[in-house]
């Protein structure tokens, strides 16, 4: 689609988009990297990668949310 002028409703739309996609981004980050860590743990018979993965996932999602909506 071609570039459009900003309409007044865009602000409300951006806010709602952010409000609704932040929780699912956080959840997705935890699930992807926590899940990856859990699989690594199972494979290598360790127990450290799952918590590391969850924390990494949260950090990455917060960074993503900050860069996408935090301006």
């Amino acid at each position: 689609m071609s570039e459009q002028e900003r309409r007044p409703e865009d602000d409300g739309q951006d806010f709602a988009n952010a409000a609704w996609s932040i929780p699912s981004s956080l959840l997705a980050g935890m699930a992807i990297y926590g899940g990856g860590g859990w699989l690594l743990d199972r494979w290598l018979d360790t127990s450290a990668f799952f918590p590391i993965g969850v924390v990494l996932g949260v950090v990455l999602s917060v960074y993503l949310v900050y860069r996408k909506y935090g301006r």
């Binding site: 699912s24 981004s25 959840l27 997705a28 980050g29 996932g57 960074y63």
Partner: peptide, 21 residues
Amino acid sequence: PIYLLLAPIEFLSNMIIAPFT
């Protein structure tokens, strides 16, 4: 480089978690 880490999060969030929730 950060795209490599963030793309899976966006995919999971948009394609699976969004319709689920």
